[in-house]
Design a protein around this nucleic acid. Structure first.
Lengths: 215, 215
DNA sequence: GCTTGTGAAGAGATTCACAGCA
DNA sequence: TGCTGTGAATCTCTTCACAAGC
């Protein structure tokens, strides 16, 4: 199948496949199967095959997939050859951790700037990342070619920060605040809400653990 | 409709509704509608009504929902009255940020202990959270009644950490490592992979921005 | 009037199961 | 023989559209 349109659910799994393939390559495997890849990625084999079919990939029936070729195809689809510079907004606990996080740069998402309202931070660097005031956003987005904004501010400041990111031309936002951001339709927001995740876990704990409390 | 079974997709939205209802209550509203709630939660009104119908809730036709009553019902469904103590494993940048994060305690997920392999940290406290060695896991889970384990170790250590959490009796894991954890079926894992999120944003940037590069 | 609650329709994702091919 | 690629079936979630009821 041609890669005309890849379903969202598939896109969300491609990074996992890519990482799994990396492990396989590191372990010296030159060939793999949908079964093995499924095991590594934590999904089932039919899903792996269907997902890969959207990439227009061609494994070999009776044999499997060539690891190196598959890495190439998945990388291609994800566009990992591109580099998308990131700005981190808000240098609280989480923002600082994100700014320091080296894994981003390795994957093509270098944190090239940070924004904070604290005048004591502005003008300094935090782990090599220069800190700017909010007013400087539009300019640094332009001069540094920033493509993605990370919102790590307190939730009260999140919407204002998002507005400023959008005004500065950013079209992709990763939001760590608990707030629901309101942005134009052409801006993509991915929300990572840690409290929500915990509450979902809590829901299932509550459901599964007690075999119904006695009256 | 009775709350016999709530779809996963609905469960994942309940925390968002709860937060939105909190904002409404804070702004003094005593009544609301599926429209208003939808706007605040960033979804559409039909979804709100369908979701709430799973809770067996009763709004008033022609009027809307009583905010206070709805807060009660959603809270009830999520079990937010419960407190689920959390242990954070791995005190790198991210782990430390999570340990310091006060929002968790407020929502019923107090971080009561941390685990790290670094002997210089063990025995000390990080922002009031006592640090234990990995070997102490089973004991602190038992004595502190820990329900949820957060994996914030380097990815190489993630599976081992998960194994130890499971052995210690933990059934709910929030995983921040890029690794896919392999756990028994009765253990629920929620993975929050920051690089994956960025790669998904990158995929769409690649797709949407260039109107196809010229040959 | 206005807004909920919900069957029914629609869209999307997953899984099945097997034909096709090395 | 063994594994891929994929239509068809199934399941899940979303959206529609309207009757029910304040």
């Amino acid at each position: 199948m041609a890669s005309g349109h890849i379903p969202e659910a598939t896109v969300a799994r491609l990074p996992v496949y890519l990482r799994s393939l990396g492990e396989l390559a590191a372990s010296g495997a030159s060939t793999t199967s949908s079964d093995v890849l499924a095991e590594l990625a934590g999904v089932n084999a039919a899903k792996v095959r269907k997902d890969l079919s959207y990439l227009g990939t061609h494994g070999t029936r009776g044999v499997g997939y060539d690891v190196r070729h598959l890495v190439f195809e998945v990388s291609q689809a994800l566009g990992v050859a591109n580099t998308w510079p990131v700005v981190v907004c808000g240098l609280g606990n989480l923002g600082r951790a994100l700014a320091k996080h080296t894994g981003f740069t390795e994957r093509g998402f270098p944190v090239v700037a940070a924004i904070d309202v604290n005048p004591e931070l502005v003008g300094r660097t935090v782990d090599g990342v220069p800190v700017h005031p909010p007013a400087a956003l539009a300019e640094i987005v332009r001069t540094l070619g920033i493509a993605i904004g990370v919102v790590a501010t307190p939730s009260a400041a999140a919407q204002g920060t998002a507005d400023r990111l959008v005004a500065a031309g950013i079209r992709s936002i990763l939001d760590f605040s608990p707030a629901v951001l309101s942005v134009p339709h052409y801006v993509e927001v991915r929300a990572v809400d840690l409290s929500t995740e915990l509450q979902i876990l809590g829901f299932h704990l509550q459901r599964d653990l007690p075999p119904l409390p006695p009256v």
